[in-house]
Computed example of a mutant assay.
Amino acid sequence: MKHLKILFLFLLFLIVSCNGKENHPYTFYYWKTKLKLDNEEKKALDKATVPYLYTRFFDVDKVNGKFQPVAVITKDQSFQTGKQIVPIVFITNQTLLGISAEEIKFLAESIHHLIQKKSGEYQLKITDEIQIDCDWTAGTRDDYFKFLKELKKVSAKKISCTLRLHQVKDKKQTGVPPVEKVYLMCYSTSSPLEKSDKNSILDTEVLKSYLSKIEDYPIQKIEVALPIYSWGIVTNHLKKHKLINALSKKDLENPSFKKISDNEAEILKDGFYFGSYLNKGFKIKVEEISNEQLQDVIGFLEKKIPHFNIIYYQLDSKFVLNRKL
Score class of each variant (00 low, 15 high):
residue 149 K to T: 05
residue 313 Y to M: 04
residue 247 L to A: 04
residue 203 D to Q: 01
residue 255 P to G: 08
residue 209 S to T: 03
residue 103 E to V: 08
residue 165 L to Q: 11
residue 160 S to H: 02
residue 99 I to C: 05
residue 266 E to S: 12
residue 310 I to C: 01
residue 24 H to Q: 05
residue 289 I to S: 02
residue 73 I to T: 06
residue 223 E to F: 01
residue 241 H to K: 15
residue 147 F to R: 02
residue 7 L to T: 03
residue 10 F to H: 00
residue 196 S to V: 00
residue 47 K to Y: 07
residue 134 C to V: 05
residue 65 G to V: 10
residue 301 L to S: 04
residue 44 A to R: 03
residue 322 N to F: 07
residue 27 T to A: 07
residue 216 D to L: 06
residue 126 I to H: 08
residue 169 K to N: 01
residue 307 H to E: 14
residue 141 R to E: 10
residue 37 L to S: 10
residue 309 N to R: 06
residue 313 Y to L: 04
residue 240 K to D: 13
residue 64 N to G: 07
residue 236 N to M: 06
residue 317 S to Q: 06
residue 165 L to I: 07
residue 259 K to A: 15
residue 109 E to I: 08
residue 113 H to V: 08
residue 81 T to V: 15
residue 289 I to D: 04
residue 59 D to S: 11
residue 289 I to L: 07
residue 61 D to T: 09
residue 219 I to E: 00
residue 110 S to D: 14
residue 165 L to N: 09
residue 170 D to M: 04
residue 95 T to I: 11
residue 163 L to S: 07
residue 220 Q to V: 03
residue 308 F to G: 02
residue 34 K to A: 06
residue 199 N to D: 10
residue 240 K to Q: 15
residue 155 S to E: 10
residue 52 Y to Q: 14
residue 59 D to I: 07
residue 206 V to K: 06
residue 193 L to H: 05
residue 323 R to A: 05
residue 15 I to S: 11
residue 121 E to Q: 14
residue 63 V to S: 12
residue 282 F to G: 01
residue 248 S to K: 12
residue 85 I to Y: 12
residue 104 I to G: 07
residue 64 N to A: 14
residue 82 G to C: 10
residue 127 T to Y: 10
residue 173 Q to F: 09
residue 35 L to V: 06
residue 37 L to W: 09
residue 159 I to E: 10
residue 29 Y to T: 03
residue 46 D to S: 15
residue 69 P to Y: 13
residue 65 G to L: 12
residue 300 F to K: 07
residue 86 V to C: 13
residue 161 C to N: 08
residue 25 P to T: 07
residue 304 K to Q: 11
residue 177 P to Q: 01
residue 153 K to G: 03
residue 138 A to V: 07
residue 40 E to F: 02
residue 27 T to Y: 00
residue 231 W to K: 08
residue 144 Y to F: 13
residue 213 K to Q: 02
residue 203 D to F: 00
residue 305 I to S: 08
residue 11 L to E: 00
residue 114 L to W: 10
residue 9 L to K: 09
residue 137 T to C: 00
residue 33 T to Q: 15
residue 92 T to E: 15
residue 182 V to G: 02
residue 320 V to P: 01
residue 137 T to L: 04
residue 235 T to A: 02
residue 36 K to S: 12
residue 12 L to M: 10
residue 262 D to E: 15
residue 219 I to A: 01
residue 94 Q to I: 05
